[in-house]
């Protein structure tokens, strides 16, 4: 077996397992946990397009989740426009907003960009919490928006609502596979090379013909568009959105935590990170939220410190090494046996 085919087989097994899981795991509770895990892996992967490759630290990505969630929900509630169309509209709107924030802030260095993106989410959240009506759009202030559920047992593709968890599972699984594939393609493209180079040594990259600021803005717009799609998905999953659920720093920080712990700028990092950290968040929300709200962020912070001390580039690096060793062992025994 060649290393190439070993990788392909591994990947195929992984995908098949993910596709088959709902057939084995029939419990809606477990499926829900998996759906949320994929959703976070998805959002972190899209975060990674800027936070990982472009070498900056965006701490306000929830604003794009919020834009996606609010746009599709408002369009559905007020005009009956299918959330699938709303999803695309929200993505474009988020991309446009990302352009407006990215243009001036991506020229800033490190911490300033992080602070600017944080300030922006907080600003947007305060605005949304304080207006019930924004022009023709009903936002309903801090109370948020309810999507009336379809009658029990009914599902509709057009309404993006389903009676069981399985359709949600497959939608988010395909979305996740889509962005992972896109990231992989991007990392091997001119834009990917330019982003990595510009993130590492901006002056050298510029001397080699890379318009670093422009590449970063492009990545930011792409990332915002894709992140907003997750917002619509989240809204349709929960059928209830409010500023504190989709427009918070909590969510923005969690994405950054997952990326940093999993492995910033790597393909597997966001998935590994989500796999490790979603359970921590879920359990601390279930068992500690009454007594210690926000505990999950403290736990994530502690884990981040420990990981950064021992694996400053995140967990994906030692795991990749482990995988490679396994691959070497298996591939060499196979060829050895043939001799």
């Amino acid at each position: 077996m060649t290393p190439q085919s070993f990788k392909k087989t591994g990947l195929a097994l992984l995908v098949l397992t993910a596709l088959a899981l709902p057939l084995i795991l029939r419990s809606p509770t477990y499926l829900h946990i998996l759906i949320m895990l994929y959703l976070y892996a998805y959002m972190t992967t899209t975060w990674n397009l800027v936070g990982g490759f472009a070498g900056v630290l965006p701490l306000g990505h929830s604003v794009f989740v919020g834009i996606g969630a609010y746009t599709s929900t408002v369009l559905w509630l007020q005009w009956g426009i299918s959330p699938w169309i709303g999803m695309l509209v929200g993505g474009c709107l988020a991309g446009f907003v990302a352009y407006l924030i990215g243009k001036p802030t991506l020229k800033m260095r490190g911490a300033y960009f992080a602070l600017a993106t944080m300030a922006f989410v907080e600003g947007v959240r305060v605005i949304v919490e304080n207006v019930d009506q924004l022009g023709p759009f009903k936002l309903n202030g801090p109370r948020g928006l309810n999507i009336p559920p379809l009658p029990a047992g009914e599902g509709s593709l057009l309404a993006f609502q389903f009676a069981t968890k399985e359709p949600y599972y497959y939608i988010i699984l395909f979305m996740l596979m889509g962005v992972v594939y896109l990231t992989w393609r991007l990392s091997r493209s001119k834009l990917g090379y330019s982003l990595s180079a510009g993130g590492e040594e901006p002056e050298a990259a510029e001397a080699l013909g890379v318009n670093v600021a422009k590449c970063k803005v492009t990545a930011m717009v792409l990332s915002a568009f894709l992140t907003a799609l997750a917002g619509t998905f989240l809204a349709q999953m929960t059928l209830f959105i409010y500023p504190k659920s989709v427009l918070t720093l909590d969510l923005s920080f969690e994405l950054a935590f997952i990326a940093l712990i999993g492995g910033r700028g790597s393909l597997a990092g966001p998935i590994i990170g989500a796999l490790m950290l979603r359970p921590v968040t879920e359990f601390s929300r279930i068992y500690l939220s009454a007594t210690l709200p926000g505990m999950h962020l403290i736990l994530l912070g502690v884990i981040l410190i420990v990981v950064m001390l021992y694996q400053p580039r995140g967990l994906s690096e030692p795991l990749t090494r482990l995988f490679n060793r396994l691959q070497d062992r298996i591939c060499s025994t196979k060829t050895g046996g043939a001799k």
Binding site: K190, Y193, S194, A205, L208, G209, V210
Partner: peptide, 8 residues
């Protein structure tokens, strides 16, 4: 390759 992308 980063340099080469200036031409392709």
């Amino acid at each position: 390759m980063v340099g080469a992308f200036a031409r392709t």
